[in-house]
């Protein structure tokens, strides 16, 4: 018995050490370095970079494109998950698979797809041009890219929850005379709200950090089509390391806030279920 216990505790210690070490080297160390380099040239430089006009513009664009993407994807995710779990229809498997596409293909390719569709060589270009709509190398393109890359998150979180719950409660509500609207807001939504919130948070995190697809579609017009990650890249390419890392630290701080929100949501969701 004693031997077995010892064995167990050795395995345990090894596993925990390995995981912590890995986390430290891969995550905590780099994050500390980001903050260290960001502040290396002094607080003044840091403040100046962070409050710089172009940085603020980039922050604004990142936040607004994230907001639009999250709203659109929350609605899309709800509809798609609802359709997939509550109805059976032709093409359901196809839809389920298609939702995963952004996970599977590289964001760069996603960016190229939009260039080939809406860019100068794309088939939709002429038509859009006649309405004076620019997508490629403009803000709409960035938003499209962010939406594309983040659309699976909400749906993916919701589908298992909706599946596991079945439709008994909805049917019970319907039998008591409730219409679809009431059923959704009074019965379904409370059941999925934590999963929904969790999906929204993951979606937000991914939208803020998106680089590849946005990079292809943005054209890197400083103050116009630059998001925070792109701004970091530009600064870095100009060998302005301190500034690059200062801007990065903004992203890190936003990520930490989201991480905390995520943990709160997860904790509350679990607590409510365990009640």
């Amino acid at each position: 018995m004693a031997l077995k216990n010892e064995d167990g505790s050795i395995t345990r210690a090894l596993l925990i050490t390995a995981s912590l070490l890995f986390l430290f080297i891969m995550l905590i160390l780099p994050l500390c370095i980001v903050l260290y380099i960001a502040l290396r040239s002094g607080w003044e430089t840091y403040k100046n970079t962070v409050t710089d006009f172009y940085t603020l513009k980039a922050l604004q664009l990142t936040l607004s494109s994230t907001l639009v993407a999250v709203v659109v994807n929350t609605l899309f995710g709800l509809f798609a998950a609802w359709a997939i779990t509550k109805f059976s229809f032709r093409g359901k498997k196809f839809l389920t698979t298609m939702i995963d596409v952004p996970f599977a293909i590289s964001p760069v390719i996603a960016g190229l797809i939009f260039i080939l569709t809406f860019g100068r060589i794309g088939w939709a270009h002429e038509w859009l041009d006649s309405y004076n709509i620019n997508i490629v190398f403009a803000v709409p393109g960035i938003i499209l890219a962010v939406i594309f890359v983040t659309f699976p998150f909400v749906a993916r979180e919701l589908i298992p929850v909706l599946n596991a719950q079945g439709s008994d409660e909805e049917e019970a509500a319907a039998l008591m005379g409730a219409n679809g609207f009431v059923i959704f807001f009074r019965v379904t939504l409370p059941n999925i709200k934590w999963a929904l919130l969790y999906g929204v948070i993951l979606c937000t995190a991914r939208a803020m950090g998106e680089f590849g697809a946005v990079s292809v579609l943005s054209g890197h017009l400083r103050g116009k089509t630059n998001t925070l990650p792109l701004h970091v890249e530009i600064l870095y390419n100009e060998y302005k390391y301190s500034q690059a890392f200062a801007v990065s630290s903004i992203l890190v701080i936003m990520a930490v806030i989201i991480l905390i929100a995520r943990n709160i949501v997860e904790y509350k969701g679990k607590k409510e279920l365990g009640l």
Binding site: D168, E169, E171, A172, A174, L175, M176, G177, N179
Partner: peptide
């Protein structure tokens, strides 16, 4: 179903 005015007790209560 919502117009039939039937009471239903589900197998798992729901």
């Amino acid at each position: 179903a919502s117009k039939r005015g039937i009471g239903f007790v589900f197998q798992n209560y729901a």
